[in-house]
């Protein structure tokens, strides 16, 4: 396992979910005449003026507000995503500018399918843990693409989460350790210039999602000498409603442990934002002394596992910014036609 020399933690966090939803049954109505099951109830849909940059900005502002930290104190602003609005021009520069963190800051983008955000988070732990910076903003955000009619279209959604890493003594949750498990597993990919990704059908489950998450999670538990029952809460990457519940069960975590962080049935798979948003939703309800186990997953493939312990600071900080529940409650459903228009799925001729 990996531990920084200097103890680190989360000094702030923020989440963002767009206002709009499409029901999975509405997607099924178009493509399967409503026949068959659907992997989630609904997914979030970005409004026409939203993208990875705008969602990152809002999540990051909430993280800074919770920490009551001025943006010019940030050592880095890193955005993990597979849907950066530009191919060349970092999302991190726009986000850093909007926060007021420029110009004396490191900024840039990370890419690792759905674990780009946790990749930035681990790097942030290292940056603060080494003493190179006091505060690093690690953001996971996506407006995920999916081919019309593809299985992914039911789940590929939009959202963001920002984790503000800082010294452990200032934290609302300390981070004990992390492990990273990575292999070359081509379960899901998108070639350059292609609008939609390709996935390996049944190959995406067992050899990719399950093997990778289980390997990272078991290694961290073993290295820490802990059992799943030692944790108050757990959160896993959420590509649909079933996978995170299945992997939790296999590892020995209960339904009650994962319930507060299980957002995918309502908002789908927010990709780089998924595991991180689940962590934020847990922090919204956690009490001092609670322990949280998080494992991300990104196709390609890899997982990062983390062990966190909530501190007293959570009590005064969480109300300084909107809770995840506020974003979940403001939902407005759109039909497939509006969704297709907003997501650029119409050929205008």
């Amino acid at each position: 396992m990996m531990k920084p020399t200097r103890p680190v933690g989360l000094v702030g966090y923020g989440v963002y979910v767009p206002r709009y939803r499409i029901a999975a049954k509405e997607i099924a109505r178009i493509w399967t005449d409503g026949q068959g099951g659907v992997p989630v109830d609904s997914k979030s849909v970005p409004g026409p003026d939203e993208d990875t940059i705008t969602m990152s900005i809002e999540a990051a502002r909430s993280a800074l507000a919770r920490a009551e930290l001025s943006a010019d104190q940030l050592g880095a602003v890193w955005v993990g995503s597979e849907s950066h609005p530009y191919s060349v021009k970092p999302s991190g520069t726009v986000v850093a500018e909007a926060l007021g963190a420029t110009p004396w800051v490191s900024a840039g983008d990370w890419e690792f399918a759905c674990k780009a955000g946790s990749e930035a988070f681990t790097a942030g732990m290292a940056m603060v843990g080494s003493g190179m910076a006091n505060y690093v903003l690690a953001i996971g955000a996506d407006t995920a693409q999916s081919r019309p009619g593809d299985a992914l279209e039911y789940t590929a959604s939009a959202g963001a989460a920002a984790l503000l890493v800082g010294p452990a003594e200032e934290s609302l949750a300390t981070i004990e350790a992390t492990v990273s498990f990575v292999t070359d597993t081509p379960d899901f990919f998108r070639r350059a210039e292609r609008p939609y990704p390709t996935h390996g059908n049944r190959f995406t489950g067992e050899p990719a999602y399950f093997r990778t998450i289980q390997s990272a999670a078991r290694r961290l538990l073993d290295d820490l000498g802990r059992a799943p029952s030692d944790f108050t809460y757990a959160v896993f990457h959420q590509p649909n409603a079933k996978f995170p519940q299945a992997v939790a069960k296999r590892l020995g975590f209960s339904d009650a442990q994962i319930a507060p962080g299980l957002l995918s049935p309502q908002i789908g798979n927010t990709y780089s934002g998924a595991a991180l948003s689940g962590l934020c939703a847990i922090l919204d309800v956690a009490q001092p002394g609670d322990t949280i186990f998080m494992t991300s997953y990104g196709s390609g493939a890899g997982s990062d596992a983390y062990s966190l312990t909530v501190t007293d600071a959570i009590l005064e900080r969480r109300a300084r910014a909107p809770l995840t529940e506020a974003y979940l409650k403001r939902k407005v459903f759109v039909d497939y036609a509006v969704y297709a228009k907003w997501r650029g799925k119409l050929v205008m001729g």
Binding site: G47, P48, D49, E50, D51, I53, T54, I57, E58, A98
Partner: peptide, 9 residues
């Protein structure tokens, strides 16, 4: 009551 958000113009 309204609040500012940064969006794509």
């Amino acid at each position: 009551p309204v609040e500012m958000v940064t969006r794509k113009l």
